[in-house]
Amino acid sequence: MSRQVTITIDGQQVTAAEGDKLLWVALDHGIYIPHLCGIREKEHPDASCRLCFVEVEGLPNPVTSCTLPVKEGMVVRTRSERVDRLVRTAFELLLSNHRLSCAKCGKNGRCELQKIAQERGLKLKLTRMRSLLVEKPVDDSPEKFYYDPNRCVLCGRCVWADREKAKIGAIGFVRRGMDRRVAAFWEQPLADSPCIECLACVEACPVGALVAKEMKE
């Protein structure tokens, strides 16, 4: 049993188990912090989406809340000029490589990107950035879902679900840098992979990359 500590988030006092990651503590208390890659059960967070920045009193720079263990007396602000700037840039960067046609997306209305935009007053279109999107074919081979890599934000939640929930190992991250993507072996269609279509990955996907087919028109 870990010790209970009291911390302050945006002026609100909350209690939590010492060492729990701030992101989940905040969310559990109804305080929203943008996030895509966070997985509560994962001991060592990926910290790859770079959206969950907060200011912590005593720390010189904004930090990612998914990696921050809470300590007694910690004083946190989820918004500041610096935090907002980083979140905005990270968000716009993700959009710059994302197919931006929400109306045609199977996750329209249930998409985490839309939620972040709404919560933080950000636009769902490119204003500053150049579009980096190079259209890749949609994998329509599975019976129950489809995979649109053009909407993938590389959060890794599907890969985690495939490994830890479904225990399959059909998909993983392949290639590097801008070419990094979620794919099956040899980048073959998912229907030719060991995938059993349990839909664990579809459930995990926060955006319109993995979408169950009945949701489609």
């Binding site: 990926d46 910290a47 790859s48 989406c49 770079r50 959206l51 840039t89 990270a90 960067l93 993700l94 710059s96 490589n97 950035m129 150049r130 980096l132 590389l154 290639r175 590097r176 840098g177 801008m178 070419d179 990094r180």
Partner: peptide, 13 residues
């Protein structure tokens, strides 16, 4: 490596 948003997409921008 392409893992984090800033490095993957920021350096490309």
């Amino acid at each position: 490596c392409g893992k984090c948003t800033f490095c993957r997409l920021g350096t490309r921008q």
